[in-house]
Protein backbone atom coordinates (compact mmCIF):
# COMPACT_ATOMS: atom_id res chain seq x y z
CA UNK A 1 0.00 0.00 0.00
CA UNK A 2 1.23 3.49 -0.85
CA UNK A 3 1.95 5.91 1.97
CA UNK A 4 1.51 9.04 -0.09
CA UNK A 5 -0.27 9.61 -3.35
CA UNK A 6 -0.68 12.79 -5.41
CA UNK A 7 -3.32 12.39 -8.06
CA UNK A 8 -3.32 15.21 -10.64
CA UNK A 9 -2.69 17.82 -7.96
CA UNK A 10 -2.53 21.50 -8.83
CA UNK A 11 -2.11 24.38 -6.41
CA UNK A 12 -2.75 28.05 -7.05
CA UNK A 13 -1.91 31.03 -4.84
CA UNK A 14 -3.18 34.54 -4.96
CA UNK A 15 -0.33 37.00 -5.00
CA UNK A 16 -1.35 40.67 -4.95
CA UNK A 17 -4.62 39.77 -6.60
CA UNK A 18 -2.96 37.66 -9.32
CA UNK A 19 -3.43 33.92 -9.41
CA UNK A 20 -0.07 32.13 -9.44
CA UNK A 21 0.16 28.41 -10.15
CA UNK A 22 2.65 26.79 -7.75
CA UNK A 23 2.04 23.15 -8.74
CA UNK A 24 0.69 21.81 -12.02
CA UNK A 25 -0.92 18.35 -12.39
CA UNK A 26 1.38 16.49 -10.04
CA UNK A 27 0.95 12.77 -9.92
CA UNK A 28 3.23 10.99 -7.52
CA UNK A 29 3.34 7.79 -5.51
CA UNK A 30 5.54 7.32 -2.47
CA UNK A 31 5.91 3.90 -0.90
CA UNK A 32 6.52 3.23 2.78
CA UNK A 33 10.18 3.32 3.91
CA UNK A 34 11.15 5.28 0.81
CA UNK A 35 13.56 8.25 0.90
CA UNK A 36 12.41 10.71 -1.75
CA UNK A 37 14.34 13.83 -2.66
CA UNK A 38 12.57 16.72 -4.40
CA UNK A 39 15.10 18.75 -6.33
CA UNK A 40 14.63 22.07 -8.00
CA UNK A 41 15.41 25.74 -7.89
CA UNK A 42 13.99 28.11 -5.40
CA UNK A 43 10.29 28.77 -6.20
CA UNK A 44 9.78 25.57 -8.21
CA UNK A 45 7.07 24.33 -5.82
CA UNK A 46 9.01 22.00 -3.51
CA UNK A 47 7.70 23.53 -0.26
CA UNK A 48 4.16 23.68 -1.64
CA UNK A 49 4.36 19.98 -2.42
CA UNK A 50 5.66 19.25 1.09
CA UNK A 51 2.85 21.30 2.65
CA UNK A 52 0.25 19.38 0.66
CA UNK A 53 1.89 16.09 1.59
CA UNK A 54 1.88 17.07 5.27
CA UNK A 55 -1.82 17.98 5.26
CA UNK A 56 -0.95 21.58 5.95
CA UNK A 57 -2.75 22.84 2.87
CA UNK A 58 -5.40 21.81 0.40
CA UNK A 59 -4.84 21.35 -3.33
CA UNK A 60 -6.72 23.61 -5.74
CA UNK A 61 -7.53 20.55 -7.79
CA UNK A 62 -6.67 16.87 -7.68
CA UNK A 63 -6.38 14.72 -4.58
CA UNK A 64 -3.71 13.98 -2.00
CA UNK A 65 -3.91 10.65 -0.18
CA UNK A 66 -1.95 10.22 3.02
CA UNK A 67 -1.83 6.71 4.43
CA UNK A 68 -5.01 5.94 2.55
CA UNK A 69 -6.92 9.08 3.65
CA UNK A 70 -7.87 11.82 1.17
CA UNK A 71 -6.87 15.11 2.81
CA UNK A 72 -9.48 17.18 0.97
CA UNK A 73 -12.23 15.23 2.71
CA UNK A 74 -10.97 16.08 6.18
CA UNK A 75 -11.95 19.00 8.39
CA UNK A 76 -9.33 21.20 10.05
CA UNK A 77 -9.53 19.04 13.16
CA UNK A 78 -9.19 15.91 11.03
CA UNK A 79 -6.09 17.31 9.36
CA UNK A 80 -4.62 18.20 12.76
CA UNK A 81 -5.20 14.65 13.96
CA UNK A 82 -3.63 13.24 10.81
CA UNK A 83 -0.52 15.39 11.26
CA UNK A 84 -0.25 14.51 14.94
CA UNK A 85 -0.26 10.81 14.19
CA UNK A 86 1.46 10.40 10.88
CA UNK A 87 3.61 13.42 9.93
CA UNK A 88 6.79 14.98 11.22
CA UNK A 89 8.40 18.17 9.90
CA UNK A 90 11.95 19.49 9.82
CA UNK A 91 12.89 22.87 8.43
CA UNK A 92 15.86 24.68 6.97
CA UNK A 93 16.12 27.07 9.92
CA UNK A 94 15.36 24.36 12.48
CA UNK A 95 12.37 26.25 13.92
CA UNK A 96 13.07 25.38 17.53
CA UNK A 97 11.20 27.45 20.07
CA UNK A 98 13.82 29.58 21.79
CA UNK A 99 11.85 29.76 25.01
CA UNK A 100 11.90 26.00 25.53
CA UNK A 101 14.79 23.76 26.47
CA UNK A 102 15.96 21.01 24.17
CA UNK A 103 13.88 18.34 25.84
CA UNK A 104 10.83 20.60 26.06
CA UNK A 105 11.10 21.26 22.32
CA UNK A 106 11.24 17.55 21.62
CA UNK A 107 8.29 16.78 23.89
CA UNK A 108 6.06 19.34 22.25
CA UNK A 109 4.27 17.22 19.58
CA UNK A 110 3.28 14.63 22.18
CA UNK A 111 2.10 17.31 24.60
CA UNK A 112 0.07 18.99 21.89
CA UNK A 113 -1.51 15.61 21.19
CA UNK A 114 -2.55 15.47 24.81
CA UNK A 115 -0.02 12.94 26.06
CA UNK A 116 1.47 13.62 29.46
CA UNK A 117 4.16 10.90 29.43
CA UNK A 118 6.38 12.72 26.95
CA UNK A 119 9.61 12.93 28.93
CA UNK A 120 10.90 9.39 28.40
CA UNK A 121 10.08 9.21 24.67
CA UNK A 122 11.82 12.58 24.30
CA UNK A 123 14.93 11.28 26.05
CA UNK A 124 14.90 8.20 23.81
CA UNK A 125 14.70 10.35 20.71
CA UNK A 126 17.52 12.60 21.89
CA UNK A 127 19.61 9.53 22.63
CA UNK A 128 18.84 8.25 19.15
CA UNK A 129 20.14 11.46 17.55
CA UNK A 130 23.22 11.45 19.86
CA UNK A 131 22.24 14.47 21.94
CA UNK A 132 22.09 12.80 25.32
CA UNK A 133 23.18 15.19 28.06
CA UNK A 134 22.01 18.34 26.30
CA UNK A 135 18.37 18.04 27.42
CA UNK A 136 18.29 21.18 29.52
CA UNK A 137 20.10 23.50 27.19
CA UNK A 138 18.30 26.18 25.25
CA UNK A 139 18.50 26.22 21.43
CA UNK A 140 20.81 29.24 21.32
CA UNK A 141 23.36 27.24 23.33
CA UNK A 142 23.67 24.64 20.56
CA UNK A 143 25.47 24.53 17.21
CA UNK A 144 23.50 24.51 13.96
CA UNK A 145 23.98 20.78 13.49
CA UNK A 146 22.87 20.08 17.04
CA UNK A 147 19.82 22.26 16.58
CA UNK A 148 18.84 20.38 13.46
CA UNK A 149 19.25 17.07 15.31
CA UNK A 150 16.95 18.37 18.05
CA UNK A 151 14.46 19.27 15.32
CA UNK A 152 14.78 15.73 13.94
CA UNK A 153 14.25 14.24 17.40
CA UNK A 154 11.16 16.43 17.74
CA UNK A 155 9.90 15.28 14.36
CA UNK A 156 10.36 11.63 15.34
CA UNK A 157 8.93 11.63 18.86
CA UNK A 158 5.46 10.56 17.81
CA UNK A 159 6.87 7.95 15.42
CA UNK A 160 5.37 9.45 12.27
CA UNK A 161 5.07 7.36 9.13
CA UNK A 162 6.09 10.33 6.98
CA UNK A 163 8.90 12.80 7.68
CA UNK A 164 8.89 15.96 5.60
CA UNK A 165 12.19 17.81 5.42
CA UNK A 166 12.32 21.24 3.82
CA UNK A 167 15.95 22.08 2.90
CA UNK A 168 17.21 20.40 6.09
CA UNK A 169 20.85 21.16 5.36
CA UNK A 170 20.35 24.57 3.80
CA UNK A 171 21.75 26.38 6.85
CA UNK A 172 24.59 23.97 7.57
CA UNK A 173 28.14 23.55 6.36
CA UNK A 174 28.92 20.60 4.08
CA UNK A 175 30.34 18.28 6.76
CA UNK A 176 27.48 18.89 9.18
CA UNK A 177 25.00 18.66 6.33
CA UNK A 178 26.33 15.25 5.40
CA UNK A 179 25.98 14.08 8.99
CA UNK A 180 22.33 15.18 8.95
CA UNK A 181 21.75 13.41 5.65
CA UNK A 182 23.27 10.24 7.10
CA UNK A 183 20.96 10.58 10.05
CA UNK A 184 17.98 10.90 7.73
CA UNK A 185 19.08 7.81 5.91
CA UNK A 186 19.28 5.96 9.25
CA UNK A 187 15.73 7.06 10.03
CA UNK A 188 14.49 5.36 6.90
CA UNK A 189 16.59 2.27 7.39
CA UNK A 190 16.27 1.74 11.12
CA UNK A 191 12.87 3.24 11.93
CA UNK A 192 11.11 2.53 8.66
CA UNK A 193 9.98 6.14 8.30
CA UNK A 194 9.29 7.53 4.85
CA UNK A 195 11.09 10.78 4.07
CA UNK A 196 10.17 13.40 1.55
CA UNK A 197 12.99 15.93 1.40
CA UNK A 198 13.04 19.18 -0.53
CA UNK A 199 16.49 20.35 -1.58
CA UNK A 200 18.09 22.49 -4.18
CA UNK A 201 21.42 20.69 -3.92
CA UNK A 202 21.89 17.74 -6.25
CA UNK A 203 24.69 16.39 -3.99
CA UNK A 204 22.31 15.77 -1.14
CA UNK A 205 20.18 13.48 -3.30
CA UNK A 206 22.90 10.80 -3.00
CA UNK A 207 21.19 9.47 0.14
CA UNK A 208 17.74 9.23 -1.45
CA UNK A 209 16.06 6.21 -3.06
CA UNK A 210 14.08 8.36 -5.45
CA UNK A 211 14.93 11.76 -6.88
CA UNK A 212 12.15 13.88 -8.32
CA UNK A 213 13.07 16.94 -10.33
CA UNK A 214 10.66 19.85 -10.21
CA UNK A 215 10.58 22.85 -12.47
CA UNK A 216 7.98 25.60 -12.55
CA UNK A 217 5.54 23.49 -10.56
CA UNK A 218 5.83 20.40 -12.75
CA UNK A 219 7.69 17.11 -12.32
CA UNK A 220 10.28 16.97 -15.08
CA UNK A 221 12.09 13.79 -14.14
CA UNK A 222 11.84 10.89 -11.70
CA UNK A 223 14.95 8.80 -10.99
CA UNK A 224 14.55 5.64 -8.94
CA UNK A 225 17.62 3.85 -7.63
Amino acid sequence: MLLLRFDGVSKDYLSNGTRVRALESITLDVAPKEFVALVGRSGCGKSTLLNLAGAMDFPTSGEVWLDGQPTTKLSDDGLTKLRREKVGFIFQSFQLLPTLTVIENVELPLLLAGRLDAREPARDCLRWVDLEGLENRFPHQLSGGQQQRVAIARALIHSPRLLLADEPIGNLDTATGNLILELLRRIVTERGTTILMATHSVESTAFADTVIHLRDGRITEVCRR
Binding site: G54, M56, D76, D77, T80, R83, R84, F89, Q95, L97, L108, P109, L112, A113, R154, H158
Partner: peptide, 16 residues
Protein backbone atom coordinates in the same frame (compact mmCIF):
# COMPACT_ATOMS: atom_id res chain seq x y z
CA UNK B 1 3.05 34.33 14.04
CA UNK B 2 5.89 32.02 12.97
CA UNK B 3 5.76 30.36 16.37
CA UNK B 4 2.03 29.80 16.12
CA UNK B 5 2.45 28.53 12.57
CA UNK B 6 5.12 26.12 13.75
CA UNK B 7 2.85 24.82 16.50
CA UNK B 8 0.27 24.00 13.84
CA UNK B 9 2.98 22.09 11.93
CA UNK B 10 3.80 20.22 15.12
CA UNK B 11 0.21 19.10 15.58
CA UNK B 12 -1.49 21.95 17.46
CA UNK B 13 -5.11 22.57 16.58
CA UNK B 14 -6.47 26.07 15.96
CA UNK B 15 -8.27 25.77 19.28
CA UNK B 16 -5.03 25.07 21.08
Amino acid sequence: RREFGLLRFLGASAGQ
